[in-house]
Design a binder for these strands. Structure first.
Length: 889
RNA sequence: GGGCGAAUAGCUCAGCUGGGAGAGCGUCGGCCUUACAAGCCGAAUGUCACAGGUUCGAUCCCUGUUUCGCCCACCA
């Protein structure tokens, strides 16, 4: 036995640092493009360049890394392509905040200087999240890192924009959009979130112009009345038939507006009369179009009342609301105010209440693009996991509205469109124009707006690989294999990538989409700064190690909608990592002086002893499960199977079993154990490396023989020669006896040092042979002095008993035996067996079962019947004996 | 209003295409057995939400109900 130089507990911090440096130095993550090998590729969902790693990123990237490392080990040409997103609004906000601290606004700098300032910020601070990803072991090909504002990606953006424009799929138009007065930009529908809140519903009287009466309308936004151009009622509303077509006087303004009839008005709601503000409400906008109403905008982009608001001009919208309400009250138009709970749309970035308003924006027509994407999901070219998302996907795609892609900010891809100021010609080309091609004027002006950030993200799977050039990367890695992302951006991002990929590459950008859950805290709440319940992945890494965190996230990644993460769970899995470490440390003590070829002993399974054949069989069973789990994105199954195999079977049973062999003077015995030990240990390291790369790599590096990196070593191939069901059955008998003996010792609280003997009655010849062959090891593992195994004989009196399947154990305990307790145990067991037996008999007595059930199921029941009957006989007999003893005492 | 999902041991959750209910943590008892006390051995614990149905057989499939969560739409 060699002196160990591995520390007693796993030191993850030093180990992680060491391997990160080495993997990097040896370019282990670099993608290969070898001819003839299958390709596996993933593009990272690019985190915002302003982002800081949160637990959701940790989950997302751990899962991608598991798949990447698995396929890399399988020998595929494997690419995991990393990068970040320029995150237009978010990044601009960050830099504006910086400026504000200096007392400046972006207009003080001007557009070019401001953009330069953002780039500067990006150079200095924009790499944080990438560095954090590296720390958790993400094996991206970092040399290929991309940024959505890169030169290459920008070129792709322009190509796509120009093409779609020329195809008529991008257009500019005056529509109602969501506007954030704080970010001062339009937002797409998806960028609006709804928050429930307490508000008021104001009832306002609008008198008829002819003085014959009045209508009362209800609104939550009274200030918008300044832009009213109609009052609408339902055409069938009996109350208002006389009003339709008449005019009312708009309070405070004196303007007269029409009363129109429209089915969009809900009969039952409020007063049944609806004020119509076409410029500031989506439904009213539609109604305005239908009835040819006037469109009066009353606010500017900052939420201030404009010149159309008359005396209210210049007021901030909510201040204006108060003034309007006061003035309405004073003038006698305010009928009532009631408390009203409703949800309001807010900006997903800054949570400012958004303002719907008409403005001129750029749009992508979605209908045809959406149809292509739906077809791809329909016919299985793109598979969603879990499948349940299909319905949501189709529902959304069927109701899709055109996508507003212009944003009134500076940071982003500026829309490549120029308008000739002289002739009005619009110029959208691949190169910047210097003059108008129509009239030759040089008085041309570029569009001020930039594109929605998701526009460039939508191109990510091919823009990052060099499109529009025809690159070898595209040929090898497009379409990518799988997209791993959170379901909350299925529509923001995944659907749009599909549309763009299909439209420009002719193929969907990925074959599988794995949508994982959102990580919540242990009580199911969203993690947020305000709740203070966030779990910082880097804290976790510092505290428990990257492997423990990765294993936890993998184990929790069952396909549901949410994952509740409890720090205790991570701690539990840290123990598991440490368990592996110590098992390896133990193995290393015995293997350090071996030649690595000793593992070849495991290639001749028929020569091996029972426990060796058993562990090889179990290892192969585990490998089968893990391989399938990785292939089918069943991450939790891979983790679960590994955990069970390693801790229970490998450590608790196998390592304990082979201890005497490892200390044996017989070199043949010793080497058999060492050879199989090495083979199994190597197998389990390979199996789990994708999940827990650091600890496995470290252990691998100290095993016998010259070794290259584990992450570049092959993943275990199927070993049908290791699978041995007979060995598993035989071992089960041995394990049952061991457990039985341990239970007896434990129940009587007999100290391990007290020597005991046992008699095992086992009528079955084969079982008996197996037990006899392994009697010595059974005794050693249970600290029994002697075990006699026999087919039959006189049952000992004054003994604690254990009844198994077709076997019975007696441990003589003169003077110690608690007959009453033994009897109680016996009766309880008896009742259980009788109940099961009754069930089985009922089944087998059922003609239909015999007739209709699968033959295998019937055979199984029959086997069960025999076993239970045997057990029942033994238990009954033992019970009678105990009763007699109890009576005698 | 439309859709999706969840309900299993005290807690957090597995349970893949129907055929004797599992894990981790926690609890209780014993053990420093020379890899690991972050450990080992053993024990206890479940009308698998409720009601029907299909089936020889349902935690699993179908219908309905209840509770909870999420998404979409609406929100004058």
């Amino acid at each position: 036995m060699t002196e160990t130089f591995l520390s007693k507990s796993y030191e993850f911090a030093a180990t992680e640092e060491k391997w990160l440096a080495r993997w990097r130095a040896e370019h282990c993550f670099a993608a290969h493009m070898d001819a003839g090998k299958p390709a596996f590729s993933i593009v990272i969902p690019p985190p915002n360049v302003t982002g800081v790693l949160h637990i959701g990123h940790a989950l997302n990237n751990t899962l991608q890394d598991v798949l990447t490392r698995y396929h890399r080990m399988k020998g595929d040409n494997t690419l995991w392509l990393p990068g970040t997103d320029h995150a237009g609004i978010a990044t601009q906000n960050v830099v504006e905040k910086q400026l504000l601290a200096e007392g400046k606004r972006r207009n003080d700098l001007g557009r070019d200087a401001f953009i330069e300032r953002v780039w500067q910020w990006r150079r200095e601070k924009g790499g944080v999240i990438i560095e954090q990803l590296k720390k958790i072991g993400a094996s991206c090909d970092w040399e290929r890192e991309r940024f959505t504002m890169d030169e290459g990606l920008s070129k792709a953006v322009r190509q796509v924009f120009v093409t779609l424009y020329k195809e008529g799929l991008i257009y500019k138009g005056d529509y109602i959009v969501n506007r954030c007065p704080s970010c001062q930009t339009a937002l797409s529908d998806d960028e609006v979130e709804y928050e429930e809140g307490d508000g008021s519903l104001y009832h306002i009287r609008y008198p008829l112009a002819d003085g014959s009466g009045a209508l009362v309308v209800a609104t939550t936004r009274p200030e918008t009345m300044l832009g009213d151009t109609a009052v609408a009622v339902h055409p069938d509303d009996a109350r208002y038939q006389d009003f339709i077509g008449k005019e009312v006087v708009l309070p405070l303004t004196g303007r007269t507006i029409r009363v129109i009839a429209d089915k969009a008005v809900e009969l039952g709601f409020g007063t049944g009369a609806l004020k119509v503000t076409p410029s500031h409400d989506r439904n009213d906008y539609e109604m305005g179009k239908r009835h040819n109403l006037a469109f009066i905008k009353i606010m500017d982009g900052r939420g201030l009342m404009n010149e159309n608001a008359g005396v209210y001009q210049g007021l901030e919208r909510f201040a204006c609301r108060e003034r309007i309400v006061a003035d309405l009250r004073d003038a006698g138009f305010l009928v009532s105010i009631e408390d009203y709970r409703h949800s309001v749309g807010v900006c997903y970035r800054c949570h400012t209440v958004i303002e719907p308003e008409t403005s001129v924006q750029w749009f992508v027509a979605m209908k045809t693009l959406a149809e292509e994407a739906m077809a791809a999901v329909e016919d299985g070219r793109v598979r969603l996991h879990p499948k349940s998302w299909r319905q949501n996907f189709f529902g959304w795609m069927n109701n899709i509205r055109d996508w507003c892609i212009s944003r009134q900010i500076w940071w982003g891809h500026r829309i490549p469109s120029w308008d000739c100021q002289d002739c009005g010609e619009r110029i959208v080309e691949m190169t910047d124009p210097s003059r108008c091609p129509q009239c030759g004027s040089t008085n041309i002006v570029q569009e001020k707006d930039v594109l929605d950030t998701w526009f460039s993200s939508a191109l990510w799977p091919f823009s990052t690989m060099g499109w529009p050039e025809k690159t070898s990367e595209l040929a090898m890695f497009y379409p990518t294999s799988v997209l791993v992302t959170s379901f909350d951006i299925l529509f923001f991002w995944v659907a749009r990538m599909m549309m763009m990929g299909l439209h420009f590459m002719g193929e969907p950008p990925f074959k599988d989409v794995y949508l994982h859950a959102l990580v919540r805290d242990k009580d199911g709440r969203k993690m947020s700064k305000s709740l203070g319940n966030g779990i910082d992945p880097l804290d976790v890494v510092a505290q428990h190690g990257a492997d423990a965190m990765r294993f936890t996230l993998t184990a929790l990644a069952a396909q549901g909608r949410e994952i509740r993460l409890d720090l205790e769970r991570i701690e539990g899995y840290r123990h598991f990592i440490n368990k592996i470490w110590n098992a390896a440390r133990f193995a290393h003590m015995h293997l350090a002086d071996c030649h690595e070829n000793i593992r070849e002993i495991a290639d001749n399974t028929e020569q091996l002893s029972l426990a060796q054949r058993w562990i090889l069989s179990r290892a192969e069973a585990c490998a089968e499960t893990v391989r399938r789990a990785y292939d089918d994105f069943l991450f939790n199954e891979a983790a679960q199977a590994s955990y069970q195999f390693i801790w229970t079977e490998f450590c608790d049973w196998y390592l304990e079993w082979i201890k005497p062999d490892l200390f044996s003077a017989d070199i043949g015995v010793k080497d058999e154990a060492r050879g199989v030990l090495l083979a199994v240990l190597e197998t389990l390291l390979r199996l789990t490396h994708p999940i827990i790369p650091f600890v496995t790599e470290e252990i691998w590096s100290v095993l016998p023989g010259a070794r290259s990196s584990l992450m570049l070593s092959p993943f275990p191939e199927p070993r049908p020669d290791w699978r041995d069901l007979r060995a598993e059955e035989e071992m089960a008998v041995v394990m049952e006896v061991i457990s039985g003996l341990r239970t007896i010792r434990s129940e009587y609280e007999i100290h391990p040092s007290v020597k005991l003997t046992a008699v095992v009655f086992c009528p079955g010849q084969e079982k008996q042979a197996v037990l006899s062959a392994n009697g010595e090891r059974i005794a050693a593992l249970t600290r029994f002095e002697r075990l006699s195994i026999t087919a039959s004989g006189a049952k000992p009196e004054n003994a604690a008993g254990f009844v198994g399947a077709d076997l019975e154990i007696f441990v003589p305990l003169q003077g110690f035996v608690d007959v009453a307790a033994e009897l109680a145990k016996n009766q309880k067991e008896l009742a259980k067996v009788e109940e099961k037996l009754a069930q089985t008999r009922k089944k087998l007595g059922n003609e239909n079962f015999l007739k209709k059930a699968q033959p295998a199921a019937v055979a199984k029941e029959q086997g069960k019947l025999a076993e239970l009957q045997g057990r029942l006989a033994l238990l009954t007999e033992a019970g009678n004996r105990l009763k007699k003893m109890a009576g005698a005492a």
